[in-house]
Amino acid sequence: MTDATAPTPRTAAPAVAPRVKVAMILFAAFALFPLLAFALDDPFLIVIGTRILAYAIAAMALDLILGYGAMVSFGHAAYLGFGTYAVAILSSYGVTDIFAQTLFAVAISAVFAFVTGAISLRTKGVYFIMITLAFGQMAFFFFISLSAYGGDDGYGLSGRSTVLGSNMLENDTTLYYATLVALIALFVLCHRIVASRFGRVLTGIRENPTRMESIGFPPFRYQLTAFVISGCITAVAGVLLANQAQFVSPAFMSWHRSGELIVMVVLGGIGTLSGAIGGAVAALLLEEVLGMMTEHWRLWFGIFLVLMVLFSPRGLTGLFEQIRGRRE
């Protein structure tokens, strides 16, 4: 039975490397994208691009708990909302610095995620989905009734956030690149987290919570921590979205928006991070392109989604890896 002479196997994790490569290709494409906008002389493309990058951050944050932690949060738009309203509320008090606004957004989101997560995690499966939806709706209706900031009409911002006193973000291209930098930094953060001790515990709980308990891990505290981290990262996306739109409204936090985030993650392939980024790009581009062709674009988008789920359950990532595997 005992075989002490056997070689110690490699212990690196090569399984994640190709997906990092995918992310790097996506980031390179994002970095070059403004050139296309200039070449086509269509500055609106930059605005769409910024929106896509911000949603990519939110989708990636959701993937951290949905893909790695098997926690399907149907209320994640609430954190987008906290991010956007943090910008609106602080700038109405004269605090326009984006770091201060982000800190505020993250703090509010951490508290909300901690409290609602602690309650939601007492449930599982469909009940978890429903209870996160309910908390998301509570946040939604709170901002609907916040008449000082326009209620459900929303609230226009007088300008974009400042960066250490500079109003450089007023330039659309600068905001685009700032959003890209945030996306890359947060991708690195998420990537480190999933490959860390904490990430391994989180993934283990997804795989088999009973086994995790029987080797000494209480799932709740790890799941809750991941839930809070995810909410905080999503809030950063909200801060960037408010700057992109220069307008905030409860529409950012409606349950449709939470559903769209889930669609992005599933479309890209859950539990891959890079897939969520690709999923956000694909979903929002399809929305733009189909929206130009027909007002019934949601129908065609729905058909596309059904086909994807049927033929590539692992989303774009699965499709991509299949094609590459066939070529090799």
Binding site: A12, R192, A195, S196, R197, R200, G204, G216, F217
Partner: peptide, 22 residues
Amino acid sequence: ALAVQARKGSSFRFFAPVATEA
């Protein structure tokens, strides 16, 4: 390794890669 991790040090470590922890 995960079962070993449960009794060796904190699992609230978010940055260092676990796969190469000798």
